[in-house]
Design a protein around this nucleic acid. Structure first.
Length: 509
DNA sequence: AAAAAAT
């Protein structure tokens, strides 16, 4: 079996890898490291969680041992689509480069230029950047790309999605063609292939983990739910509480505003929760993510900024509060769990308007996703239980609310949730026929848990901390102040103590 | 229809 020692890495790198506890390279590492060390171009087709980052960090460290950087002329450049990913690559360099004395510089937006100038001035062996800030620096004349010997373009397909390709092309034009180029993408649509052909010369092609596949260790469930936000939130809370093996979870929303709203709601209900989306100031983003990684926060409500690439080990659960509109996003989102062969669970809340998106997803992953507990819309009684009757045609006077609230499991009370350990772990693993609660018959069960108003300050599964760390002052102030019209005010409160002006005005979007 | 990224 191949070990790291067989790949041609330097002693310094090997010892750092060993210290980090790794002995066996992943397929992408075993495939990409040797040709990279021979200075070949690489076309790496690999998804997150395959060890992709180390597959370029380790050979780069080895190669950088010779030579040294000159002011404003970085020797290597890594382009990343998001700030978090860039920061994460930076961490990798610190971890595996601990035996080196290299200047690693992170150039991302949302933070001040001054320190970035200073570091560039000292000479960067490795520059890790998001495209916008990098171009900004070059336009200010603080950065020369003419000394770059090695270029990494990471997550190329995502760069494409985000409209970064023109920026990338501009940047690549600034770099001598004698460079070595490592190009990574999770998928290879035609545009990306064209780009690869343009940027790479006779690359070694390494492909692992077919795209649009979901890990076999992830249990996927659909959860029928109303389209009304407050009912969805309640359904989600019940779902979270009914999990017996939840250690931490990411909850995805499609919109930033919904991230903010759900975050507030969960916090109000006593969950240990953080939020992450692109309109938060950088400091809050960093704090939230770190708090989540450090297990100070159990739940992270996020936009798709967190869907790909972020290396958060051992997420036990993913909840899609919204069905992703692009099917590929589903794959990326639930790829946040079940990593490295671990077990994971992914729940997707679905209302009837979402079914076409669900169809697209099942088509993409070429398998059906089971409904939880016999949930389903499928033209049965459940149709009436959903939101349809309420908006639009007359409600036929059914006493019961939607099934969403009707099938509350834990019965709002903490007690219930704790005392009777919901052993029917139905939520997680089993094929769960409708045995426990035939949700398909709303009326039958509707009667029993007369849903009492949203539990007063229920205390779910005893979150470790009510909130992460940022800005309690502002949060509280905002919350009190905005009480009256809080529903109208989409301003994301509580995301740090310096909410940028642009978040205050058109916060709706 | 939405998110990400320079300000």
């Amino acid at each position: 079996m191949t070990t790291f020692a067989d790949l041609g890495l330097s002693q310094k790198v090997l010892s750092a890898v060993t210290d980090a506890g790794y002995t066996t390279p992943t397929p992408i590492q075993a495939g990409a490291i040797p040709p990279a060390l021979e200075r070949r171009d690489i076309l790496g087709i690999a998804q997150t969680g395959t060890g992709k980052t180390a597959s370029f960090v380790l050979p780069m460290l080895t190669m950088l041992e010779r030579g040294r950087a000159r002011a404003r002329m970085p020797r290597t450049l890594i382009l990343e689509p998001t700030r978090e990913l860039a920061a994460q690559v930076h961490e990798n360099f610190e971890k595996y480069g601990k035996n080196h004395r290299l200047n690693i510089v992170l150039l991302i937006g949302g933070v001040s230029f001054e320190e970035q100038y200073r570091k560039l001035e000292r000479g960067a062996d490795v520059l890790i950047a998001t495209p916008g800030r990098l171009l900004d620096h070059t336009e200010r004349g603080k950065l020369l790309m003419t000394g770059v010997e090695l270029l990494v373009i990471d997550e190329a397909d995502r760069m494409l999605d985000m409209g970064f390709i023109p920026d990338i092309e501009r940047i690549v034009k600034l770099i001598p063609f004698t460079r070595q180029t490592l190009f990574f993408s999770a998928t290879m649509p035609p545009e990306i292939q064209k780009l690869a052909d343009k940027f790479l010369q006779n690359p070694a092609r390494i492909e692992v983990a077919p795209p649009s596949s979901t890990a076999a260790t992830v249990t996927q469930k659909l959860v029928a739910c109303s389209g009304k936000d407050f009912e969805k939130r309640e359904r989600l809370r019940d779902l979270i509480r009914s999990q017996t093996d939840l250690t931490n979870a990411i909850i995805f929303c499609n919109r930033k505003k919904d991230v903010a709203d759900l975050y507030k709601s969960l916090e109000k209900h006593g969950f240990s929760v953080g939020a992450l989306h692109g309109d938060m100031d950088q400091r809050s983003r960093t704090n939230m993510l770190q708090g989540f990684k450090d297990n100070e926060i159990t739940l992270l409500v996020a936009s798709d900024v967190a869907a790909r690439g972020l290396d958060i080990p051992a997420v036990s659960h993913v909840f899609n509060f919204d069905v992703p509109i692009h099917a590929e996003d589903y794959v990326h989102r639930i790829g946040r769990t079940g990593r490295a062969g671990r077990e994971g669970a992914a729940f997707t809340l679905v209302n009837r308007r979402d079914t076409k998106y669900v169809d697209a997803i099942t088509k993409l992953i070429t398998r059906d996703i089971e409904w939880l507990d016999g949930d389903k819309f499928a033209g049965t009684a459940s149709d009436d239980a959903d939101e349809a009757p309420r908006r639009g045609r007359r409600s036929d006077g059914k006493p019961g609310s939607s099934r969403c609230s009707g099938r509350k499991a834990g019965e709002t009370e903490t007690e219930a949730a704790k005392a009777e350990p919901i052993n029917e772990t139905a939520a997680v693993e089993p094929v769960a026929n409708a045995s426990a609660e035939p949700t398909a018959a709303p009326d039958a069960q509707e009667s029993r848990p007369k849903r009492q108003e949203p539990s007063k300050r229920a205390d779910p599964q005893q979150p470790k901390q009510a909130s992460p760390e940022p800005a309690n002052d502002d949060r509280n102030r905002n919350r009190r102040g905005g009480r009256n019209n809080e529903d109208r005010d989409p301003t994301p409160v509580g995301f740090g103590d310096d909410i940028p002006a642009f978040m205050m005005i058109g916060a709706g979007s």
